[in-house]
Write a protein that binds this DNA or RNA. Structure first.
Length: 285
DNA sequence: ACCCAGGCATTGG
DNA sequence: CCAATGCATGGG
């Protein structure tokens, strides 16, 4: 089985925590210690290996997708140096989360629909509804499903999505996005500001959704979803001195992490989920 | 029976 | 420009 090398330190289990944290994800399915995803109609299985990740189907078609799924383009060494030089809290987090490499959403349409799904509701609820969308409009291949394509959802009626648990509004947003002429793949070449402006011209895509698209799909180093509730709570836990920070305060902190806001956000969120905010001051050598 | 959860558009000042 | 409102599900 081919091994895809990943720069050390790398912790596959830790890096894929997100795919298990909020319930199963039919499009990125965790089964028996391995991650399954459908790429170009075929199921690919990713499992931990020595010095990297074992991939059962590694060819020119699957490799870029796998690389994004594993967050290969993040420069963790540079981030680690930055943390050590500039920020004690971050330095400690990098140490505690050694080997954590944030996964990317490999597909732009999937990334946006996933964000729409998660607007306002808990991630648990979002995953439940999203799985019903995948089961209804995606295609099974092996154990996992391919995420519904824009072509497939463009032909759907909002009512059909509402029947799956989406609000009427969200059902309209998703079908509208699927029918939108905006070239999502082309956004790869646009600046952060242009990506945000283009996405926000689509009904249902606001600043929060655009920020997560920059962060989780395009891996833009400076993406910083300051309006995100989870990030606000995480930033508050690590930097708020016992107080809950406002969105504006979180936004203002971006300068402190420049140009590594994206990785910082991922480390703070994951660090918070794993409870590493509980002992910031408590450890006695 | 509430209330909250990784927003957003819409409406009305 | 800002404030108030409705939205649907899952979990507490």
């Amino acid at each position: 089985m081919p091994l895809l090398r990943v720069p050390a330190p790398y912790d596959f289990e830790l890096s894929t925590e997100r795919f298990r944290a909020f319930g199963p994800d039919l499009a990125n399915l965790w089964v028996d210690g391995a991650l399954h995803r459908v790429v170009a109609g075929r199921e690919v299985r990713l499992a931990p290996g020595s010095g990297g990740v074992l991939v059962d189907l590694l060819d020119p078609a699957t490799e870029p997708v796998v690389g994004r799924l594993l967050g290969l383009e993040f420069d963790l060494a540079a981030f680690g140096s930055f943390a050590n030089e500039h920020d004690r809290v971050l330095a400690r987090l990098v140490e505690r989360l050694a080997g954590f490499r944030p996964p990317l959403a490999p597909d732009p349409f999937e990334a946006l629909v996933t964000s729409i799904t998660a607007q306002q509701v808990s991630l648990q609820a979002a995953f439940a509804v999203r799985n019903r969308l995948i089961a209804r409009f995606g295609s099974p291949a092996g154990r996992a499903y391919s995420f519904p394509t824009p072509e497939r959802l463009a032909g759907a009626e909002p009512e059909e999505l509402a029947a799956l648990g989406f609000s009427r509004r969200k059902a309209e947003y998703i079908v509208g996005l699927a029918r939108s002429p905006l070239d999502l793949a082309g956004l790869r070449d646009a600046s952060d500001a242009d990506v945000k402006a283009l996405l926000r011209s689509v009904r249902g895509l606001g600043e929060w959704t655009a920020d997560w698209f920059l962060a989780r799909h395009l891996a833009r180093p400076r993406a910083w979803p300051a309006g995100d509730l989870g990030l606000r709570k995480a930033v508050s836990a690590f930097y708020g001195a016992g107080r809950e920070l406002s969105t504006e305060e979180v936004r203002a902190l971006a300068d402190r992490f420049d140009p590594f806001q994206n990785l910082t956000a991922h480390y703070l969120l994951t660090g918070k989920r794993l409870g590493f905010d509980q002992d910031q001051t408590g450890s006695r050598d």
